[in-house]
């Protein structure tokens, strides 16, 4: 009898809380610790890379000082190194590539969000994602076999004939290997990311904004202009910055088409070099220490430029938000 009553009472007296497993502090601790450890791997990697670059570049900067950034002759045989042509090449190809890609990308994003019929939208988005998945070296090969001959035989002569009085469109072509070809390839490579991010931004514009414009009798173009693009312009600028980040560091395809010349030429038809492409094309031949250190210093400069450009962009973005005023 007593046993019966205890077994009868046990289920009725044990509350839900008593039946639950005690809170495990150990697993909570392990979870936090694991996440922290994984996150610190990234930090440690960045620090290691930064330290190695700094140490490697140290000799070069010790020898040349800041003139490493301002000198434009790069002559490994004479043991004289100046990185200005590569800084110039990186900035020109990146900005030109961005300039070409942005209108294309924004127009594509507008088409995808505002105009495209449903049956066309998904295939197009898939194709754009595919474009992002093409390996850099494949794009480089395509450029060598298709883009460069077209540039060399048709585009450059045409530009020389029509706008050749401008220094940037004058001079001779070297089989198409040029700063302009590198800019075009960069444009192709940053197009997908600017398009996808811009598309997300445009999709986040509330329909109520579009309806407000439609309700005033706006045409599709006017709706896009006053309700969609002006609402989204800051986000599109952010998309461009993401694209710029990719453009600055783009290496393989650029190395294949830029012609690898260590000098600054005013003409876009002339070959050049970027910070990334000079490392890729010359690291194998860098036999002596000072040559190799100079290339590592170039890497540090690229690291620094990427950092500065991104910081400036963030400041611009922040500065830009001030004019929209207090939201509510």
């Amino acid at each position: 009898m007593p046993t019966a009553t205890t077994t009868m009472e046990a289920p009725t007296t044990a509350t839900a809380a008593q039946r639950m497993r005690p809170v495990s502090r150990a697993s909570e601790f392990a979870f936090r610790g694991l996440c922290l450890a994984m996150a610190s791997v990234v930090l440690v990697l960045v620090l290691i890379v930064g330290y190695q670059l700094w140490r490697g570049a140290g000799h070069t900067f010790h020898r040349f000082g800041l003139s490493f950034l301002t000198k434009s002759d790069w002559d490994p045989n004479a043991n004289s190194f100046g990185a200005l042509p590569f800084i110039y090449g990186t900035l020109v190809t990146s900005l030109l590539g961005l300039l070409i890609a942005t209108p294309l990308a924004v127009a594509t994003a507008v088409f995808l969000t505002e105009l495209a019929p449903n049956w066309l939208r998904q295939p197009l988005i898939f194709l754009i994602e595919m474009l992002a998945a093409i390996p850099s070296v494949i794009l480089g090969l395509w450029a060598i076999f298709v883009l460069l001959p077209v540039l060399n035989e048709h585009v450059f002569p045409f530009l020389q004939k029509t706008v050749g009085f401008l220094p940037i469109f004058s001079g001779t072509s070297f089989g198409g290997y040029s700063v302009l070809a590198a800019s075009l390839i960069i444009a192709v490579m940053v197009l997908p990311i600017i398009t996808s991010v811009s598309r997300e931004i445009l999709r986040s514009v509330p329909d109520l904004q579009r309806e407000a414009a439609y309700g005033l009798g706006a045409t599709r173009w006017e709706v896009t202009r006053i309700a969609v693009l002006s609402y989204a312009k800051k986000g599109i600028f952010g998309a461009m910055i993401l694209g710029l980040g990719r453009a600055l560091g783009e290496t393989m395809a650029v190395t294949m088409v830029i012609g690898n010349a260590n000098e600054i030429k005013s003409s876009l038809f002339a070959p050049g070099n970027t910070l990334a492409s000079v490392i890729a094309s010359q690291f194998n031949e860098a036999a002596d220490d000072s040559y190799r250190d100079a290339l590592i210093a170039v890497g540090l400069v690229l690291f620094g430029i990427t950092l500065i450009v991104n910081l400036c962009a963030r400041l611009l973005l922040k500065f830009g938000t001030a004019d929209a005023g207090a939201v509510h």
Partner: peptide, 17 residues
């Protein structure tokens, strides 16, 4: 829509204007 104007459930002024 120029002859028949509309006011919506939620106010929707253009934020950049």
């Amino acid at each position: 829509r120029r002859r028949v104007g509309m006011v919506f459930q939620k106010s929707n002024p253009f934020p950049t204007m």
